[in-house]
Structures are given as structure tokens and as C-alpha cells.
Design a protein around this nucleic acid. Structure first.
Lengths: 215, 215
DNA sequence: TAGATTGTTAATCGATTAACAATC
DNA sequence: TAGATTGTTAATCGATTAACAATC
């Protein structure tokens, strides 16, 4: 609403392609490449060049005919469009195997996500450290979230506790939830929920595989 | 081709919704519910009822007017359609944090995926056990995959070693690769590659969040 | 029976692809 | 200049939604 050049809805498919371009662009930048065309980008991913152009258009970046886009500024535009130009602090709830894996994955910081603390219900875990993060009791979540102005929550608890985690986060003023649990979750209007569902990806894989064996 | 009722291409979006239905149906079944209508299913997910009907149509399941679909047989149809009715054995390569998290997640077996062994390059890990799985050297991958007739490989290595892992798997006759590394991978024709890219999901989340803060 | 729901055919909507003038 | 690539407008394609007769 504040920016008339931004379309009302951004295609989810485009949003998911932009990180792919970004990753490649950063490699190009490291190699000292200054300009890149949609044609070149498209070839890398087997996409249609026009599709890439449309995606870039969303970010507001303008190119130069015959030359393409300046790698450095395109990286900036994509990051800004994705909201990866400023760090977002986040709390993680559920320090099981998956939670630990996410805490151990340092690269999220590159993508604008800065995990600052982790929480767990298990009193044996509370007070310990995992990859440098102190584990707090979930009872401290609300106070800390408010005091530290945290708006992003990551859920890596077992499915049977996922809704509790959501409720905890919503009460604490969390605006965006990145959920790794397979449970279906209810959230109030105005809160963003993004699910990572491994079984959906697995379904695509196994269905394709089934057809390979059939033919 | 062998089944004229199966359309040539299955919409990826449909494939990703089917596991959601399945999960709910299994809960209904556990609660002793015998029949369910598309209307009911749709309400749970805020989908259009016709969308659900179309998705179910893909599985070949036929319902009864005014009554709906029999929960038990619908579960069977979805599982069969997804290829989750028979167990697929799989090898995992890369026993880092994420690899461990996946080895520790026992539920994949419910989804037709049976991880039977794990591999790593790190000689300190080789010979140890993680969640009951013995860790083998990657040099043993090819022999074991052929001997055990393994066609599914899971990649949880760091991005700089992901292409090596792919090549290892392809040489070993792996037909379907479930890749958790963010690296762009090259595969030969005929091999299925399904990527789990957390940054894509994160991009959707942070872009939405950016717009919340703007308004 | 009445009415909800299925199965099927048609309409809409949105994303992808095509076309083409402008331009560097 | 010649020609590749951008920006923009139009066409196509596929997925979602709507409409409606059949049916239990």
C-alpha cells in the first residue's frame, strides 16, 4: 500500500526462485563477474529467460539493454525485496534433533535470520548450551520476547506440542512463525505462518519414483 | 502409460496437499470416523471443497453421493498414489547435524521411506552408531547400494560436497535423490532429484514479514 | 422425498510464455 | 552499425473455481 510499484500479491513461486538467483549471483560476485543477463541466469536453472526477467522485475531492479543487470546491485535488490537486508532476531522453541540442527546451521544469518535464544520444556536441557546458545525454559519465552522485541519464532517441537508453542508465541507478540512440525496449526489473523513440511517434499519424490518403476 | 486413467502429469501442488489430507484422515480413522466428505476435509485446511475433490480424483478413489469417501479406503488410495504403500529402502550420506536429525526422525517409515544405512567421509564418524544406524565410509556406498538394491539416496552433506554425493549415488544406480543441501546439483536424465530448500521457505516468511512492518 | 455430495463439464484466474519495439 | 537484451504488452497454458445433472 505504501509503495505503488509493489504489486498487491507476490507470486509464491517467484519468491521461491529469488533465493536461487541470489545464491548464484553471490558466487558470480565472488568470481569478479560484474554483469549478468537473464539469459545466463535462466540457463543455470533451466528456466525460461522471461520468467527470470519477470522475477527480477518484482524486486524493482532495472537492467541495461544488451548488457543485463549489475551483479552487485541486483544482489542488493533481491536481498532487500526478500527482507534479507536487515537482520531479524528470532527465538527457537524445541531443542530436539531438528532444533539442534537448525541452531548449528550458521548460514541463516546470511539470510537475515539471527537466532538469539532457544527454549525447551525439558528441565534437563534448560541451562545447558547448544552451539553457543543458552537453553531457556519456555516459561521465560514471553518476557524475553517482549523485552528483546522478538517478532520471529521457530518451532521445532514434537507435533503434539506444536500448538502450545504457537499459542506461547502469539501471546508473546510474535508476528511470524517458521514451523518445522508436521502438525496442522491454528493462528490468529495477522500472524504469518510458514510451514516446512518434509513429507510434502517426500510425497513428490516417491510419487515420481513410483512412476519410474512402473514404466 | 500403463494406466490410462492416470493423467500424464500430476500437479505438484496436488501432490503436496495429499499428505495433509492423509494425516488428517489417519486421525479421523483413529477416532473411529468411517466416512468423510470433501466439504469436511476442505474446511480443515481452508481449501475449496472442489479442490479437495479434484485432488482425491487423482488417486482414483470414488466416493458416494451425499455420504462422501470411506476413510479407510481413501487412506489406502492416497498412500498407494504417493507410493507410500510399499517401503522404499534408502541410504543417507552426510551425518552432520541435519543428517542426525533425519536419522532420528522415525516417522519416515510411515511414509514409505526406510533408511537402512548412513555414510560419512569423516573417518572419526565411520564405525560409530547414530540412533542405531552404523555409519559407513562413503567408499562402501556403491557396493552396498548395489548389493542391497537401494534406489533412494538422501543428501545431508555440506554444499561443497553435495555434487560428489550425487555422483556417488548416480554411479551406484540410485534413481531418486532427496537433497537437503542448498547447492545447485547436476543430475543425468532419468534420475529424480527433489530438493528441500529451507531458504526458499524462509524467503516467503521474511518477505511477508517485511510487508507487515511496512503497513 | 429432500437435500447434501459426488462426478463432470465449463468458466475464471493467475502464472508462464511469446512477441516486439526500444536501446545500449 | 548490428545484434543481444531489456521492458512491456499480448497470448497461452494450467490450476483453481464455478455450475449442474446424477445419485444416494
Amino acid at each position: 500500500m505504501t509503495n505503488s510499484t509493489t504489486p498487491h500479491t507476490v507470486p509464491r513461486a517467484s519468491l521461491k526462485r529469488l533465493p536461487l538467483y541470489l545464491h548464484l549471483l553471490e558466487n558470480l560476485m565472488a568470481d569478479g563477474v560484474e554483469y549478468v543477463s537473464c539469459t545466463q541466469l535462466a540457463k543455470e536453472f533451466d528456466f525460461d529467460a522471461i520468467l527470470v526477467r519477470k522475477d527480477i522485475e518484482l524486486t524493482g531492479e532495472v537492467g541495461t539493454a544488451r548488457i543485463g543487470f549489475k551483479v552487485a546491485t541486483l544482489i542488493g535488490s533481491i536481498k532487500s525485496f526478500l527482507g534479507w537486508d536487515k537482520e531479524q532476531d528470532a527465538f527457537l522453541v524445541g531443542v530436539g534433533n531438528l532444533g539442534k540442527a537448525i541452531l548449528g546451521y550458521k548460514d541463516f544469518k546470511k539470510y537475515g535470520l539471527n537466532i538469539v535464544a532457544a527454549f525447551d520444556n525439558d528441565s534437563r536441557k534448560v541451562g545447558t548450551k547448544v552451539f553457543g546458545y543458552e537453553i531457556f525454559s519456555t516459561s521465560k519465552f514471553g518476557d524475553l520476547a517482549k523485552r528483546m522485541h522478538i517478532y520471529v519464532g521457530i518451532i521445532t517441537v514434537p507435533p503434539e506440542h506444536a500448538q502450545e508453542a504457537v499459542d506461547l508465541m502469539v501471546d508473546a507478540g510474535i508476528k511470524a512463525i517458521w514451523n518445522f512440525s508436521p502438525a496442522p496449526l491454528r493462528i490468529p489473523e495477522g500472524v504469518i505462518l510458514e510451514n516446512v513440511r518434509l513429507t510434502q517434499s517426500l510425497a513428490v519424490l516417491t510419487n515420481k519414483l513410483k512412476r519410474v518403476f512402473k514404466s
